[in-house]
């Protein structure tokens, strides 16, 4: 079996966002593998460690810097990587076509991808890839178990937790708490150096963009930040209650 894990590289959540010339300035900032995707890489590894025979291929579609994220995934234990290099911002629907093409060529049976992108806040990629391939998608999974070619598990639905079963192939989207991603060990970091990263160009996939971005604007709402000492709980509470009444019209 072959498992693809789609990964992206994004601004570390702890870094502040600075907008210049309508783009988020990444220069000198800490960039990391999107944590949402990292859960997918981890889960693929665990599926293999629980006994499934699988080759795990990580796929990144983005600028040259994505290679760092691909290396991290290889150090975690993925077998090889495919890097479709482009500086273009490709919308998730257009991107899904590329992923589907790779999945077909690689004859993948399972595709992992993060539930939501930490930069463009999109949740579309997993479902869109599944649609291209005419596969089912299990989104927002919180527990997975592979029995033969049947994938069982639990996922977060809008109104509760759903238990499911599905026959492979399938797309799976991942989120926090599905697992705790491992740190690469030092020996594995050294080993990853020799693993293959295949480079391809976006052009060879002939994608047509579906959405164009006109840039971003920072939204820094100034906050009052009036912080008081609450050791005298009653006094602090009454200050807060008064403030809610006067400034917010609550309990008016």
């Amino acid at each position: 079996m072959r498992i693809l894990a789609i990964i992206r590289q994004v601004l570390d959540a702890e870094e502040s966002v600075y907008v210049d010339n309508r783009t988020v300035d990444l220069k000198g900032r800490k960039l990391v593998m999107d944590t949402m995707d990292e859960y997918g890489v981890e889960e693929a590894l665990r599926i293999r460690e629980r006994g499934a025979e699988a080759e795990i291929v990580v796929v990144g579609i983005g600028p040259a810097r994505f290679e760092e994220a691909l290396r991290s995934a290889l150090s975690m234990g993925a077998d090889r990587a495919i890097h479709v290099e482009t500086d273009q911002e490709v919308d998730p629907i257009a991107l899904s076509g590329v992923v589907a093409a790779i999945a077909r060529k690689e004859e993948a049976q399972m595709i992992f991808c993060g539930g939501q992108q930490a930069d463009w806040d999109s949740q579309a990629l997993g479902a869109a890839v599944a649609e291209h391939l005419d596969w089912p998608a299990l989104t927002w999974t919180r527990k997975l178990e592979l029995k033969g070619t049947t994938l069982a598990g639990q996922r977060d639905a809008e109104d509760g937790v759903e238990s499911f079963e599905v026959d492979l192939p399938a797309v799976v989207t991942t989120q926090q708490d599905l697992n705790e991603p491992r740190y690469p060990t030092l020996p594995n970091i050294m080993k990853a150096k020799r693993k293959e990263i295949r480079r391809e160009t976006l052009e060879s996939f002939g994608v047509a963009l579906k959405v164009r971005s006109h840039g971003v604007e920072a939204q820094n709402r100034e906050r009052l930040r009036e912080v008081i000492d609450g050791r005298d709980a009653a006094a602090a509470a009454s200050q807060l209650v008064a403030m809610l009444r006067e400034k917010a019209g609550v309990m008016a």
Binding site: E15, S16, Y18, D20, D25, K27, G28, R29
Partner: peptide, 13 residues
């Protein structure tokens, strides 16, 4: 200050 930490890069903010 822009970086919120020590850095040797050019960080703006």
């Amino acid at each position: 200050v822009a970086a919120g930490r020590y850095t040797v890069e050019e960080v703006r903010g």
